[in-house]
Design a protein around this nucleic acid. Structure first.
Lengths: 203, 203
DNA sequence: TCAGTTTCATGACACTGTTATATAACGCTG
DNA sequence: CAGCGTTATATAACAGTGTCATGAAACTGA
């Protein structure tokens, strides 16, 4: 027919929520525009006018995911022990990933689908980690160099990237089922590995 | 019609090769049974009788990939410097992943699609890494404990898993476009990070 | 030779993303 | 308030998809 009244919850929001749910449940692979449109009480045309297509809808979900992710990491409180704070950050990171594995995968492991990744080392989410590392290293918390002067990273940024890679790698292997042990053991090993990673922030 | 003569290259092999090509080019997402069947001069029914379906075909490609991967890693020569050997292994690992990013992704990042992962910490490919770590640590090269006695890892296995996670994490982030710098810089940083990871094999 | 099994071509089914068309609702301008 | 352009959305069609049932040809082993 034609354009019906917009409800309290706007169509765009409903589509985003339903799509997020499907992606969290079964990954981006299992996302069907038709079924998402149906459970949002609209049609696929809405997806095209509001987002641009299937890929763009997924991209919107990913961006929403990064907002949530940033909030989770930023909520980790600062104590007077920067090393402990860093570990807490790593545990929060892991918890987020394991809570919604499919979601985490879509956020971090897409590649080449034309998605523009909102999470670059310059992004706010990364800066939370970088600042925590800088505290632990006794360095200034904000990158003091000229903004945009160079794509390279300062020492704290480099260390943060290494820690990030380690955490992400462990979690990624764990999600793929390649890490042995039960859930508790894996959690302990993850924490122990992060603690053993002090050397990564030095070199 | 009916079953035509089997050619020199059997249908199964052709399907596997075409599927590998498509996956290397555009990932598992872009694999269409119909187009793979067409370029293999057969029909989709062959995929079902020879493999079992789309998912099973992908799984077969993954297994073939792990065979190639194992061969690449096993081909890294041993010198009298176990530390350098370990680094060389890491570089070979990275080279394999960057040569066919889609392929690497399909191998390591699937999760929950019902694929049974042939690459577990007990698998031969992992054992290549574990043995190299054991040499570098001055430990016996083969896991001397009762086989299957425990799902846990021995010290060399634990260290190997950590190094694996670090390498995989760095590569995964790099494939997603989250590591700054040009290709040379990224390669150097990767090597530097592996060298700095000595602490991971201690704790 | 002859049953039994495997391979695979054909065709149908339900489903997919995308797009063209048409129309209803909104936002603006006068 | 009237009119107009823009946007949102329903409908319907198109080409493509994975899967499966049917049946026939080719292998296999006794």
């Amino acid at each position: 027919m034609a354009r019906p009244r917009t409800h309290d919850e706007t169509v765009r929001t409903r589509l985003l929520e339903e799509a997020s749910q499907v992606i969290a449940d079964s990954g981006a692979q299992g996302l069907s525009l038709r079924s998402v449109a149906r459970s949002s009480h609209t049609t696929t045309a809405a997806v095209y006018s509001l987002f641009g297509g299937r890929e763009a809808l997924i991209q919107a979900v990913v961006e929403e995911g990064f907002r949530r992710f940033g909030a989770v990491l930023a909520a980790v409180e600062h104590t007077d022990d920067p090393g402990a704070d860093l570990l807490a950050l790593g545990m929060a990171y892991r918890e987020f990933a394991l809570a919604d594995p499919h979601f985490y995968r879509v956020m971090f492991e897409s590649l080449g689908d034309g998605l523009s990744r909102p999470e670059t080392p310059a992004s706010p989410t990364f800066q939370v980690l970088r600042a925590a590392v800088a505290r632990a290293m006794g360095l200034p918390q904000d990158d003091s160099r000229e903004p945009g002067s160079s794509p390279d990273l300062d020492p704290a940024g480099r260390a943060a990237l290494r820690l990030w890679a380690l955490a992400h790698g462990l979690i990624s292997l764990e999600l793929t089922g390649l890490v042995p042990g039960d859930a508790d053991a894996r959690r302990r090993d993850y924490a122990a590995t992060l603690r053993a990673a002090r050397g990564l922030v030095a070199g």
